[in-house]
Amino acid sequence: MKVSLLKIEEGTEEAVIRCRKLTPDIRKAVLLLEQNAKQITGKYRGEKIFLNQHEILYFESVNEKVFAYTKEREMQTEYTLNELEKLLGEDGFFRCSKSFIVNIDKIVSLQSEVGNRIDAKLENGEHLIISRRYAKELRRILKEGRV
C-alpha cells in the first residue's frame, strides 16, 4: 500500500485512509490511530459502551444526569459536565451554557444574534444557543485557535 505523509503547520491533524475494502490490516491501522482519541464511557440501553470523542456532538446535563449525543444515538455518561470540561477542554470541547458542552469540530455554522448570543448549527441539523457569557469565551477560543 502506498503511504503518503503531508506535513501541515496548523489546523487539525487528520489521517485519511483510502481503501477498496476494510481489510484486517487497515482495521489495525485505524485502531492504532484511534488510540490517541479519548474514550467516554457510558450506558446505552442498559449496556456499558465506549464512545470515541470524535463521534460526540455535544453533552447535555438533564436532572443531574449527563448525556452524550452523536449523530446516531445518545448515551448516559458516568461523568459530570465539570469533569468532561476538564477532560476534553483542550480537545475542542467547549462549555457553551450551564447545561451543555459542545464539540466545536461538529459545528457547521455560527450565527450572531441579538444580545451577543450565538446560534451554533451542528452537523445533525440541531441548533444550540450560546449565551452572552459563553459567547465571549467562544470568540476567544476561535481567535486563539487550537493549542
Binding site: 496548523e10 489546523g11 487528520e14 466545536i104 457547521v108 455554522s109 455560527l110 450572531s112 476561535l142 487550537r146
Partner: peptide, 20 residues
C-alpha cells in the same frame, strides 16, 4: 448581525483547519 456572522464563520473554519 450579518457581518459578525461572517467573521465568526471565518474563525470557525480557521479553527477547524479547513478540514470540513
Amino acid at each position: 448581525y450579518e457581518d459578525d456572522t461572517a467573521v465568526l464563520n471565518d474563525l470557525l473554519v480557521k479553527y477547524q483547519g479547513g478540514a470540513r
